[in-house]
Design a binder for these strands. Structure first.
Lengths: 122, 122
DNA sequence: TTCATATTTGGCAAAATAGCCATGCTTTAC
DNA sequence: GTAAAGCATGGCTATTTTGCCAAATATGAA
């Protein structure tokens, strides 16, 4: 029998492959264009053309970004007719986006307030 | 009054700064060494020396990684005596790590099974 | 003060990433 | 069959990231 990763062991002391895969997910999400596409996919699947319109970059660029997301397992793609439709494949992502979103909004708010204060002082 | 980001607007149609900040968080987490440190910090704060022992890279490398995490707002640091202690600053991260962890463990399990199957066939 | 310890920062070379253009592939329309 | 539409991929350059060494900084001990 092959050496299978033990769930408990994984949780306690993650092995290299496990960490690498998880980092891959974060890395895939760590680009504005890719994150924007993922945000959009929360509303439902979209074809590459839709996502290209959203990003406004070359089709080839969008396609590569989608490949990164797909290979990380963040999205999945399905071909129907002449189009390829992408959809979210990481259900728990929405919650996390919501949470960080709230935090970031708060941080941006505070930073704006700080800038305003500095302007008042000068 | 300064233009403050509106929460509703942010949720519906994220602006550039918002997306960039959120992507920054993911990017920071998208490196095996940084992710490993963050995983370790779930157990509580640690000094840089602890984290260096965990990663096994040069101290300067670890310090740089920590700076990336700190600037993204994933961790915060506090100086006490001659040490600097790092702690998680993104509470909702633990849940997401748990969720993706389960998913990844399952994927790795399936891939292992596939490899084993291929070996049986050859 | 001087020394040792803990951490950050400057600087550099190697590696990875991003984005564009041109090209190739696949499916539908004609 | 040919043409067109929708995506992916090869290939290239510019930029960014990574990781090390050396040097700077800060803090506590002697």
């Amino acid at each position: 029998m092959a050496i299978l990763p033990n769930m408990n062991e994984v949780s306690a002391r993650p092995n290299r492959q496990y960490i690498a895969e998880q980092a891959r997910i974060f890395k895939a999400l760590g680009h504005p264009s890719r994150l924007l596409m993922v945000q959009a996919l929360r509303d439902g699947e979209k074809c590459v053309c839709d996502l290209q319109a959203l990003i406004g970059a070359d089709m080839s660029t969008v396609s590569r970004h989608l490949a990164v997301l797909r290979e990380a397992g963040v999205v999945r793609s399905e071909k129907r007719g002449t189009n390829i439709y992408y959809a979210l494949a990481l259900s728990c992502l929405a919650t996390f986006l919501q949470c960080t979103g709230t935090l970031i909004a708060e941080r941006i708010r505070q930073k704006s307030a700080l800038l305003e204060h500095d302007q008042d002082a000068t």
